[in-house]
């Protein structure tokens, strides 16, 4: 459905997209993840043919993207990062305006607008102007404006930024419903837990490049840390860190007061090995917890930085 092949986009000396490639299949939710300025929005703008790129190819629905390729544009929706709604139009009018850019038939448009209002749960607010809406409701309106025409492919650029928990859950549930209807969604976000729960596959971007992609499991396999175990141990032994590091599969150990964070490269009996070690030393542990490698670990290891850097 989407094929982006070695796309390069330069702003003078700055390379915003550096031979960036990725593919998305029909009916999947694909996440574009990366820190600010990594090229997520630039990639989306190139796919929407809003931005001219220097080299590479982009095909959507098997056709090359082009500013005047209306057959492709007609099947695409956009939920931009910023609120893109008219302050002077009410909820219904805003949705009708944007839906009207795609749908000329008045009866069909009326039905689609009603469905969009219901989809984002804004029936009570249909006559409200955006100024009267909360931040979360504005975000919902922003989404309704982008998907009212029921596109086959929807680009959602950080749709849950600055949204309260209730609205966020509402939005995420809506996205799942769209996927259930067979829609393809390209989703960018800062919230890794959101991406993990929502996306079928992810593309991790850094400095305009695709540095890793795949499912969460596939991405986990690309990094050295598979499991993190945190243990609290009271001991006077000074070399406890090096002893913990000698455990099977252990890669590194970080100490914080009496707690130790042990990174393991494989998920193989790490907890039982640790407990055996503690018992052999006649020590007691105050707490013990284990966590599989998260997207945050993957991101940190692959890029050397936190996602919000």
């Amino acid at each position: 459905m989407i094929m982006m092949d070695k796309v390069v986009k330069r702003y003078n000396e700055l390379i915003a997209l550096d031979h960036f490639s990725f593919e998305a299949a029909e009916g999947e939710i694909i996440g574009l993840l990366g820190p600010n300025g990594c090229g997520k929005t630039t990639a989306i703008n190139c796919m929407l043919s809003l931005l001219a790129f220097d080299s590479g190819d982009i095909e959507i629905f098997g056709e090359k993207v082009h500013p005047n390729n209306n057959s492709v544009k007609r099947r695409i929706g956009l939920v931009p990062q910023e609120l893109s709604i008219f302050d002077k139009l009410n909820v219904y009018e805003n949705i009708d305006f944007y839906c009207g850019l795609y749908v000329s038939d008045k009866t069909k448009r009326r039905r689609l607008v009603e469905e969009a209002i219901e989809f984002v749960g804004m029936d009570r607010y249909r006559k409200f102007i955006p100024k009267k809406l909360s931040g979360g409701l504005k975000r919902r309106l922003n989404i309704a404006c982008g998907m009212a025409h029921q596109p086959d492919l929807l680009f959602m650029d950080e749709p849950t930024v600055a949204v309260d928990a209730q609205s966020r859950n509402f939005i995420l549930e809506g996205i799942r419903q769209m996927k259930a209807r067979g829609k393809t969604i390209v989703y960018t976000t800062h919230y890794l837990e959101e991406a993990e729960n929502l996306c079928d596959r992810m593309v991790i971007m850094d400095a305009g490049r695709n540095i890793a992609h795949g499912t969460v499991e596939q991405l986990q396999n690309q990094i050295s840390t598979q499991e993190r175990v945190e243990v609290g141990v009271i001991t006077d032994e000074s070399d406890i860190e090096s002893q913990l590091e000698a455990l099977p599969n252990a890669v590194s150990v970080n100490r914080k007061n009496d707690n130790y964070m042990i990174h393991f490269e494989k998920q193989e009996n790490n907890i039982s090995n640790l407990i055996k070690f503690i018992e052999s030393k006649d020590l007691t542990y105050t707490e013990l917890s284990s966590e599989k490698a998260t997207l945050s670990d993957i991101f940190l290891e692959l890029t050397g930085k936190e996602l919000r850097d």
């Binding site: 809003l50 893109s84 008219f86 795609y102």
Partner: peptide
């Protein structure tokens, strides 16, 4: 205009 307004990006991405 997409480079001048957020609404413009939506408009330019549409087939209107």
């Amino acid at each position: 205009q997409p480079n001048l307004s957020h609404m413009g990006a939506r408009f330019a991405a549409s087939p209107y």
